[in-house]
Simulated assay, not measured.
Amino acid sequence: MNTVTGFASATIGNVACGFDILGFAIREPGDEVTLTLLDDPRGELPVSITSIEGDGGALPRDARKNTSSFVVLKFLEYLRSTKGIEFNGHIELELKKNLPLSSGMGSSAASAAAALVAANRLFGDPCTKMELVHFAIEGERVACGSAHADNAAPAVLGNFVLIRSYNPLDIITIPPPADLYCTLAHPHIELRTAYARSVLPRTISLKMATEQWGNVGALITGLLTSDYGLIGRSLVDVVAEPKRAPLIPGFFEVKEAALSAGALGCSIAGSGPSIFAFSSSREIATKVGNAMEQAFSSMPDALEADIWISPICRDGARIID
C-alpha cells in the first residue's frame, strides 16, 4: 500500500486539576493526514507537504515547521538509527484540518498523531503506539514551544492518560467509565497557548498544591471505580482556571449553565477557549450542550459556539479508508 490516511481526534488536556499531566481523547471531530510513498527522492527533505485544507492559510508549509510533517521526519530518523530501516524515497503529505486552531482541543497533537499512525503503517507498523507518543510530544514543541504530553499522548493512545514523569517519560492509560460523556463547547474565538501559559503563576502555596493533589488523586480514583459523584467533586482546578477564566468571555456563565443542566463538572479545555463538561449519560450531555450554547449566545456580546457530544475515545489515532 503506497497511500495511507490516518485520523486522530480532539483531546482535552489538564482535565481541570491535572495541569500538564492529565488528558483524554473524544471520538470526534479530528484531523486527517494522508501520506503517499514515492520510490524516488525529491528535494532536500524526504517529506513534503502537498496540501493543507481547513487552516485558512495559517499553518506553515515548510516540512520542518509544520507539526504533522515534522513528526514524520523524526519518525524516519528513528527508523534509520534504531530500527535499521533505510528510506531513500519521498513522502508526500496532505493535511485536512477539521479542528480549529488555538482552541484548547489539541489541534496540533491531532495532526501529529494522525501523521504518525499513517507513517507507521506505510512501513509495516515497526513501532508501538507508545513509541509513537515520543514523536508526537516533539511535535508539540514545534507547535507551541513546550513538549507537553497531555494532548499528544491521548491523541495517539486514546482513553484517559496520566503522565507520571517526563524524564524519563512514564505514561499510564486509564480506561473511562462506560457511561461517561464529554460535552465540548468551542466559542468562535482564538486563545494562543503561549499567552494562556504566560498568565499562570510561577509558584503556588503549599495549601494550594495540597488541594490540587487531592483533586488529582480523587479524580483518578473516580475514573477507575466509575464513581461519577467523585469525578464531579474532583473537577476543581485551583491553579490554572482562576487565571485563565477571565480570558474566556462568559466562562463563569457557561460553567454555571452546564452544572445547572446536570453536568458532573465543568472546566477549561486545555488552555482554552473551549470548555468541557462531563456527564453520566448522553441524554444529560446533550442537555448540557444546549445550555452551554445558550449561555454563550445570551451574553451581551453574543458568541457562536460549536458543540460536540462524545464518549471517551478508546482507540486513539487510527487508520481510515
Rank of each mutant, 00 (worst) to 15 (best):
S226A: 15
G106P: 09
E131K: 04
A196W: 03
A25K: 00
A109K: 08
A257M: 07
L200S: 02
A115F: 11
V199Q: 07
G104S: 04
F160K: 00
S267R: 04
G289P: 13
A245G: 00
T5A: 03
A149E: 07
D20P: 11
S146M: 15
M130Y: 13
R27H: 10
L247R: 04
A185W: 10
I307L: 09
E190C: 00
S274E: 10
S281M: 06
P60E: 12
P187V: 03
I26N: 06
F278H: 08
M292T: 01
D179E: 15
F75M: 12
A295R: 04
A153K: 06
L73T: 04
V142C: 05
M292F: 05
K65G: 00
P100T: 10
D321F: 10
T34I: 04
L184G: 00
R42Y: 13
T3E: 14
G18D: 03
S280W: 01
D31E: 05
T183V: 10
I204E: 02
T203F: 09
E140F: 08
T183S: 13
P273G: 06
D125F: 13
D31A: 06
P154R: 06
S274A: 13
M1K: 09
K243Y: 13
L200P: 02
S234Q: 03
V15G: 02
L95Q: 07
A194V: 14
E44Q: 12
L200T: 02
A112S: 15
R318H: 14
E86I: 09
R80D: 13
R197E: 06
I231V: 13
S281N: 01
D31P: 08
S271I: 03
S111K: 05
L223K: 01
L157M: 07
P177G: 00
V239F: 14
E293T: 07
S279V: 02
A110D: 12
S279C: 03
L162P: 03
A110V: 07
F135M: 14
I189M: 13
S234W: 02
G316L: 05
F87P: 10
A185T: 11
E190F: 04
T67W: 12
A114D: 13
S234N: 05
D150I: 00
F135R: 01
N215A: 12
S9A: 15
S234K: 04
V15Q: 08
F123M: 03
G229E: 14
N98H: 15
V156I: 14
I248D: 03
N159F: 00
C127G: 00
G250P: 02
G222W: 09
A112T: 05
A114I: 10
H134E: 14
A136L: 01
I26V: 15
A110L: 01
S69N: 06
T203H: 12
L169D: 02
R318A: 06
G56H: 11
L35N: 10
A143M: 07
K207N: 11
I307C: 08
V254R: 03
L95M: 09
T286C: 00
R42E: 13
G23S: 08
D39Y: 11
S107A: 14
D31L: 01
I248T: 06
A113D: 11
V142H: 04
L101A: 10
A8G: 05
M105L: 15
